[in-house]
Design a binder for these strands. Sequence first.
RNA 1: GCCCCCAUCGUCUAGAGGCCUAGGACACUGCCCUUUCAAGGCGGCGGCGCGGAUUCGAAUUCCGCUGGGGGCACCA
Length: 478
Amino acid sequence: MTTKVRFAPSPTGYLHVGGARTALFNWLFAKNTGGKFLLRIEDTDKERSTEEAIEAILASLSWLGLDWDEGPFYQTERLDIYQKEAQKLVEAGCAYECYCAPVELEKRRQEALSSGGTPRYDRRCHDLSSKEASAYQARGLKPCIRFYSEDKGETIVEDLVRGRVVFENAELDDLIIMRPDGLPTYNFAAVVDDLDMGMTHVIRGEDHLPNTPRQIQIYKAMEAKPPSFAHLSMILGEDKAPLSKRHGAASVEVFRDQGYLSDALINFLALLGWAFDDKTTLFSREELKTHFGLDKVTKSPAVFDTAKLDWMNGQYIRDLSDAELAEKLLPFWQGAQLLPAEKINGEMREKLTFLASICRERLIKLSDIIGLTDFFFKDVDFDERAVNKVLKKDGAKESLEAVAAKLKSIDKWSHQVIDEELRALAEEREIKPGKLFQPIRVAISGRTVSPPLFESLEALGKETSLARIEKAKTLTVS
RNA sequence: GCCCCCAUCGUCUAGAGGCCUAGGACACUGCCCUUUCAAGGCGGCGGCGCGGAUUCGAAUUCCGCUGGGGGCACCA
């Protein structure tokens, strides 16, 4: 039997990393088993669903490289199917119309709660006579449809990650499956769709575990065999509370905008609740596909550790070629207004690739490139502390003068030659290389920390380098 | 209040009764390399929530407790 799984987000916001992890596990499961992965948009909540959210979710999935074989399907385009199935259930005596008003239900719920009881629908509309029903209708009321749930025995969920979970049917009450306006509710729409779309496995968040016995009952009422279920544990923030916006980044697009690589995020997410063995942490997509299995999925919730993601992102950045890295860096330079589109030509690309090569080991996120290389694109912005610590020291002026003279004499402006010449100069003047180099660094970058000095001088060019050293001399003391 | 899930270093995890003196990775930390910062190399620190039971033997099985999380909607 070929497997079929789905990712079914409700478009009420951006793609959350928890949702991304769910999508990833489904996708990996499909790839691993040679099955199909489909996308379904659960937009039956008209109040909260938005077009922007749909676009954001699709964009994030595409960026992550989680491609789907079928869909996206939209539940709001399938309303006739739910209505038909609901009607069948009513005719079979498995569901019934209910005229109870939402405010009334909420009142009864609060009463039950405050008196220490469990809120359950009391089924008062189940045995409505046709006379009573028409009385409601005469008042202009439209009924919703409730599922008549089993109240004896137990419903067992054989969960692929959690094992056997038993629920007492007496705990479950008659849930609403269709609203008066003809829109289905989640538990019903999900069952109808999973059945209709041929899902063999339902892999979703642990928050859906309590829904599962209800859904299994609906499958039974529809005389259908439920799919296999697998419930993934939650992803928490560093404070162990469910991950949300207040933990900083929780949506996939924020990670993208901060300069995380999708390969790194995928690798990191895969390891949140899954492990292949006792030592492998870096996995290519292909390796993930071949190794992934539900049997190795962890039961306990996982804390999202940004520090580890950062490390992993650095690993992936270091794996890129100079040209690939430069290409990925381009939008960040442009976003920071450092690089006007009209200046991008062959020569500039060569320079960018060189900058990428000298900065690669210093990048955790792609956005780090801005602070690291802005001085190549615009005038030096002197850091006061750097000036005080380095330029305003005895000997700085003399060093810069000697360096300037030496650099002026260089014809072949390359970092190898600059390296040789400046080291020779340090030897001549009998000072430690670092002592000679640091003023140059501050002169050309304005800071005490920069990409490698000789390479930076090369990238800056002879003329600019000399001009900056000249200017820096005015900041020294003599 | 009721139902359900979970529990190994700070974090992600390996571990399916003796291979455990509990392994790896991130973080932290020491040293080395070094023109700054990184990156890299070699070390170190650090854990089975508690209490019972089963067993010759338990991180691993069972029970209780505690702690964390989820759910109890005309939201998904």
